[in-house]
Amino acid sequence: MARPDRLFRLLDALRRLPPPATAARLAAELEVSPRTLYRDIGSLRAAGARIDGEAGVGYTLTEDPALPPQMFTRMEVEALMLGLAEIRLSGDPVLARAAETAAARIIATLPERVQRQALHAAQEIYRFEPRQPAPPNLGLIREAIWAECALDLRYEDNAGQSSQRRIWPLSVVWLDKSLMLLAWCCLRNDFRRFKLHQMSEVTQSDESFRPRRVPLLRAFHTRLRGQGKAQIR
């Protein structure tokens, strides 16, 4: 691994891991020897990073030169921490890890007083009934949305009828107990809503619908607002 990449990963690990992070834990994260780890800590300190701690005790990143300082009000900090905590409980391990990393990076940019507010927020989230695990095709669907590529799939509707579809995926909506995909259905030549847990055999096609996703999604939202709480098909 190139040294600049290793130093970037070390900074990221110091943001993410509960402080103080031991040298052994940091070395394992970077897959380097303790000697290399100590040398990299010294390099980051020389570059302006304020890293408290020492060998045998652990290290804490108290001032991060790689990120500009941020300022939020106390209520904005509460909102950020609650929102990220909700994502960590979503049932999607990829998003949960992203939320954890995002929280660590945000906290690392805050002044010390605001950092304490973020780490000891007045409100927390806990769910007695955890959400069901995210379906295995969620990652593929997300990538297709961003790439604006059509998906081929088999769908079983609420009546148990199965059909083969090609769709243009527009957005995933997180409902109370399930996930729903807003899409343009090429079979029906119209907007449709699909429950992700009723989709199977999902594959990405070579067909691109770029750059139509944003205007299609805007039109779909306009229709949904006009319909109110319509039945999910």
Rank of each mutant, 00 (worst) to 15 (best):
residue 16 R to N: 07
residue 10 L to H: 03
residue 196 L to N: 01
residue 47 A to S: 12
residue 230 A to L: 09
residue 75 M to T: 06
residue 44 L to N: 00
residue 177 K to S: 14
residue 38 Y to E: 06
residue 42 G to T: 01
residue 142 R to Q: 08
residue 204 Q to W: 00
residue 172 V to C: 11
residue 195 K to T: 11
residue 105 R to P: 03
residue 42 G to P: 01
residue 28 A to M: 06
residue 67 L to K: 02
residue 87 I to G: 02
residue 157 D to Q: 07
residue 98 A to I: 03
residue 230 A to K: 02
residue 35 R to A: 13
residue 42 G to R: 03
residue 199 M to E: 02
residue 18 P to W: 05
residue 124 E to H: 15
residue 41 I to C: 02
residue 223 R to M: 15
residue 183 A to K: 00
residue 71 M to Y: 06
residue 7 L to E: 08
residue 144 A to T: 04
residue 231 Q to P: 05
residue 153 L to S: 07
residue 74 R to K: 14
residue 141 I to A: 04
residue 146 W to V: 12
residue 204 Q to R: 10
residue 92 D to Y: 02
residue 84 L to S: 01
residue 214 V to S: 14
residue 27 A to G: 05
residue 88 R to K: 13
residue 13 A to F: 04
residue 184 W to Q: 01
residue 38 Y to I: 11
residue 1 M to L: 09
residue 51 I to C: 02
residue 176 D to R: 11
residue 229 K to P: 05
residue 94 V to H: 09
residue 233 R to L: 11
residue 136 P to Y: 02
residue 160 G to E: 14
residue 192 R to N: 12
residue 11 L to C: 07
residue 228 G to I: 08
residue 5 D to Y: 08
residue 3 R to Y: 06
residue 87 I to R: 00
residue 158 N to I: 12
residue 121 A to D: 00
residue 227 Q to W: 10
residue 155 Y to H: 07
residue 63 E to R: 03
residue 50 R to W: 08
residue 85 A to T: 06
residue 192 R to I: 10
residue 152 D to Y: 08
residue 79 A to M: 05
residue 59 Y to G: 03
residue 177 K to F: 06
residue 68 P to F: 06
residue 128 F to D: 11
residue 57 V to L: 08
residue 215 P to D: 13
residue 200 S to V: 03
residue 20 P to H: 10
residue 54 E to T: 12
residue 93 P to Q: 14
